[in-house]
Amino acid sequence: MDQKYRIYINENTLFLTDTLPVQNKEMKQLDLQSFDFPTFYKNLDKGAKKQYVLLTENPKAAFKMIKQNCLLIKAAGGLVRNANDDYLFIFRNKKWDLPKGKVEKGEKMKEAAVREVEEECGVTILSNGEKLCKTFHIYQLGNIIVLKKTNWYEMTVKGKPKLIPQKEEGITKAGWFGKNDLEPLLKNTYLLILDVLVAGKIR
């Protein structure tokens, strides 16, 4: 999605694009001339599951404008596969998720992804492959609007190691799941996780 952006705001999706995306759901087109992100965010029903599109010849400039109104946090995570072709999921904040965390100062995104996965799940990463995708989501922290950019990487482990969820990070469960076991998890996960699975050719 070069020069096109998909930003998740709770259950809502905001597309910045120069061509209308093909979607099954109804999509509300926003007026570029009058669009003001702080106003849009303030009036947004965060619990709704709506899709919005900002059609513009320069999606990058529109994204930069949104970014200027937010605190940018960089994070990195992994889609981890074991020797049995099972995938690693964690349970945190009452939802199934993939392991990820904030990038520390001076740390490369790829290094941060490995460190976070190893810390959150108690495993050793055998190989760290190519970047699968990047995701963007916006949330509120006190009075600050945060834009989190997460880079996702393909990873493998040796065998099928025992998982040790990092409870101090709010992770209550961690498990290995085959492709055929994912449906119940995907009914209780974040929209951006579905994008990672598509990028990893699991869905």
Score class of each variant (00 low, 15 high):
residue 158 K to I: 13
residue 158 K to F: 04
residue 128 N to G: 05
residue 128 N to H: 15
residue 154 E to G: 03
residue 137 H to D: 12
residue 142 G to T: 01
residue 119 E to Y: 09
residue 164 I to V: 11
residue 139 Y to V: 03
residue 153 Y to E: 05
residue 121 C to S: 14
residue 159 G to L: 11
residue 157 V to S: 10
residue 165 P to H: 01
residue 129 G to T: 05
residue 118 E to H: 08
residue 139 Y to F: 15
residue 136 F to W: 11
residue 138 I to R: 00
residue 136 F to L: 08
residue 124 T to M: 12
residue 150 T to L: 04
residue 136 F to A: 00
residue 157 V to W: 08
residue 130 E to M: 09
residue 129 G to C: 10
residue 119 E to Q: 13
residue 131 K to T: 02
residue 131 K to V: 05
residue 156 T to D: 14
residue 148 K to P: 03
residue 133 C to I: 06
residue 122 G to V: 04
residue 141 L to Q: 13
residue 165 P to F: 00
residue 136 F to T: 00
residue 144 I to R: 15
residue 139 Y to M: 02
residue 132 L to F: 08
residue 161 P to R: 02
residue 126 L to Y: 07
residue 119 E to S: 09
residue 164 I to N: 08
residue 157 V to K: 05
residue 140 Q to G: 01
residue 129 G to Y: 07
residue 117 V to R: 03
residue 117 V to Y: 02
residue 149 K to D: 13
residue 127 S to P: 10
residue 150 T to G: 09
residue 129 G to K: 13
residue 153 Y to P: 08
residue 138 I to T: 00
residue 132 L to Q: 04
residue 149 K to C: 12
residue 134 K to V: 08
residue 132 L to I: 07
residue 161 P to M: 10
residue 150 T to V: 07
residue 134 K to H: 07
residue 149 K to V: 13
residue 145 I to L: 10
residue 150 T to C: 10
residue 146 V to N: 14
residue 153 Y to V: 00
residue 141 L to W: 13
residue 135 T to Y: 00
residue 164 I to D: 00
residue 157 V to Q: 03
residue 125 I to D: 01
residue 130 E to S: 06
residue 164 I to G: 00
residue 138 I to V: 11
residue 148 K to E: 14
residue 146 V to P: 11
residue 160 K to F: 10
residue 148 K to I: 08
residue 124 T to K: 12
residue 151 N to C: 05
residue 143 N to K: 14
residue 150 T to I: 12
residue 153 Y to R: 02
residue 140 Q to N: 09
residue 163 L to C: 09
residue 131 K to Q: 07
residue 155 M to Q: 12
residue 118 E to L: 01
residue 121 C to N: 12
residue 161 P to K: 05
residue 160 K to P: 09
residue 131 K to L: 01
residue 164 I to E: 07
residue 157 V to D: 03
residue 154 E to S: 14
residue 156 T to H: 10
residue 125 I to H: 06
